[in-house]
Amino acid sequence: MSANLSFGIYFIRSAPSGTVINVRGAGRILVGSALDYDQAGTQLFEFKRFQDRFIITNIETKLVVDMSGGSASPRTPVISCEYHGGHNQQWHIQPHGGDNRFLLPSRRFWWNANSYG
């Protein structure tokens, strides 16, 4: 868990591509947009601490980042939807390397993440 990251609003940028995550209404979360301060609503996410995990909410749509259907299977789409408090809407933040990079395992995937990590 990152000691530095607490409550706050962040862009989430993919390390290899340099582009950020954005939300287009309920459903799909995509990566590939250039960071844009003027159109930032769909690119900005509020991180709210919940025990040792985070709820990640898009500030424009108010929808949260969610593992679709609560599935723990590989290749489960990550979507945005209404908050319901399930494990599939809770995310761990693990520092990776020294370059301010993080892994974002789902609480729903946590056992897998530890097994494979």
Partner: peptide
């Protein structure tokens, strides 16, 4: 895949680049 509009999935943790994310603080 790094192309525009790429979807995000849950996957087992393997720690490769495509699972690494950076947070750019608005504050």
């Amino acid at each position: 895949n790094l192309e525009n509009g790429t979807e995000i999935f849950g996957y087992e943790t393997h720690r490769d680049l495509n699972q690494q994310w950076e947070f750019i603080g608005v504050t």
